[in-house]
Write a protein that binds this DNA or RNA. Sequence first.
DNA 1: ACCGCAATGTTGACGGTGTTCACATTGAGT
DNA 2: ACTCAATGTGAACACCGTCAACATTGCGGT
Lengths: 209, 209
Amino acid sequence: MANARRLARKPVNQYHHGDLRRALLEAALRTIQKQGVHALTLRAVGDELGVSRSALYRHFADKSALLAAVAREGFRTLRRELQQAWEHAGKGRAGLDAMGDAYVRFAIAQPSHYRVMFGSGFEREAADAELIEEGTRAFLTLMNALIEEQQQGRVRPDDPEQLANFIWSLVHGIAMLAIDGAFRPGTDAQALTRFALERLRTGIAAALA
Amino acid sequence: MANARRLARKPVNQYHHGDLRRALLEAALRTIQKQGVHALTLRAVGDELGVSRSALYRHFADKSALLAAVAREGFRTLRRELQQAWEHAGKGRAGLDAMGDAYVRFAIAQPSHYRVMFGSGFEREAADAELIEEGTRAFLTLMNALIEEQQQGRVRPDDPEQLANFIWSLVHGIAMLAIDGAFRPGTDAQALTRFALERLRTGIAAALA
DNA sequence: ACCGCAATGTTGACGGTGTTCACATTGAGT
DNA sequence: ACTCAATGTGAACACCGTCAACATTGCGGT
């Protein structure tokens, strides 16, 4: 038998699992998305895989490390979606809009996962280098797009990192407040995103008199 | 003896406390600010006040409710600081800048408290009406300032609520990312705030050619 | 083909947590 | 002075993360 990977449950009467680490990750993510971070218990994820509750400790240092890995996975797919939005929209002004929209859409589509990605749940000290690097790569996707736009003369030649921090803060703020239900009832986060991206370009000041 | 309020520890050999609810709130806030939300345990706060660990349940439905009350208190002081910044700076453009600066400063000065204010730790369903109202009042402080500026012709006559949502998202995003240590090392959150508020006014687009 | 060993999974236990329930103590109003 | 609702107590429960001792397995060297 060539393929030995078993991503689903552990077959009965089988001591070793095959790729338990990945299975744990996926099960954890599933639970988080379906029931929130607070519902994630090591015993539950173990049971779901037909595995002991402490088997996890052979693959992750502790619960924090598991959450950090889930977060890292989140940044990976977020980066891919940002990059794809940017390129699929043909870069340029439409590309930036598409990125902003994709960012907020990602957060709203998987609120619990997004929340895990930003500190809630595990200590920042436990943030392994891999997590930091993956987050940085997602950030650089935005920053590089801005640099391209600057070279095309469409964006002010400010420090691109500061510019990227600025925009990242904006979409992150919208995403977080939308997820937390902090906006007044009836607020449409997608519409707000579009509005914000437009105001972002031209500013909020009244036309010069 | 006229004044019967006892905000500090419970006097020994005294069954009733006097104002345990407020004392619990202050003790909880103290612990949160000093050691973070994760360190807040009902037993510890009880011990600190020389009171049984389950006495809390006479004043709060559960731990979530206690955190919600702490959050509510946070929104109260945040609103006051925003209002004060706005007025002390003489309103106008300087007033808006002062508000933005005060907002981020508040979050950075008391990161754990600020985090409690935004969902992390208690269920949003447990958000009593009082918490929502206090949050709304803080939001309205910003929105009313924007309306004033619109009337003075200094801010675009867009829907003020959407405008306020936009700005709130921006400062909230900066605050959250700064608190979580998500910015690249060496990033100065205050400087970023000033930059963001300036770009907010004029936009990021390059000058029209 | 065997064997030893490192890797992987299991079981039982421990301390800590939020929460509940029956009970104890008090103060305020009649 | 008496009652009763309000407030505080103590023991108990279920659950959780974590660990240490043990069981089982697959793999590399001979």
